[in-house]
């Protein structure tokens, strides 16, 4: 009875409808049999062992589970895993390369943009979605773009500074 999220090697449970899906996760195709009701966030965390994506609420408010779906930020607790079939997603684990942090990750560390770290992956991916569209945002634009993600620790000011730090670095690197 582990049909919900086990990788295809495991036999699905009896009588439970499952679908085989293939999702490109951080550039790598992953094939899994899932029950339709399984939330994408749960597939990532439990099935694919990518625990950097967090779930912080039941109501699509907190944004801790934010990932990039075809390059745009979504709340992965509010998409079914089956819906990601054939699509490409990016999680926090895909931000850094083996040797190098993404400037957003560096920015969060440099500007103390996190305390407990629970909202951080979602914040960073929301920030990446912003910077991918706008490489020179104002403070207000950053605050607006992050307003679907809740943080209880930092008071946001340093998160905003972290994103602006990253934007500056990314602009410098692209020159």
């Amino acid at each position: 009875m582990t049909s919900l999220y086990d990788e295809v090697q495991a036999a699905p449970g009896e009588g439970v409808p499952t679908r085989r899906v293939t999702i490109k996760v951080n550039g790598e195709d992953r094939t899994v049999d899932v029950e339709p009701r399984l939330l994408l966030a749960h597939l990532l965390r439990q099935g694919l062992k990518l625990t950097g994506t967090h779930t912080g609420c039941d109501t699509t408010n907190c944004g801790a589970c934010t990932i990039l779906f075809e390059g745009r930020p979504i709340k992965s607790c509010t998409m079914l895993a089956v819906q990601a079939d054939g699509h490409s997603i990016e999680t926090v684990e895909g931000l850094a390369s083996a040797s190098e942090l993404h400037p957003i990750q560096e920015g969060f560390k440099e500007e103390h943009g996190l305390h407990c770290g629970f909202c951080t992956p979602g914040m960073m991916l929301a920030a990446k979605a912003l910077l991918d569209k706008n490489d020179n945002p104002t403070e207000d634009e950053v605050r607006w773009a992050l307003s679907g993600n809740l943080c209880r620790c930092t008071g946001y000011q340093n998160i905003v500074k972290s994103v602006l730090w990253a934007a500056e670095k990314m602009r410098a690197e692209s020159k």
Binding site: P73, K75, M79
Partner: peptide, 12 residues
């Protein structure tokens, strides 16, 4: 449009 839900919800 910008006042609907929040920016992440609006992408979907």
């Amino acid at each position: 449009a910008p006042l609907v839900a929040d920016p992440i919800v609006r992408t979907r």
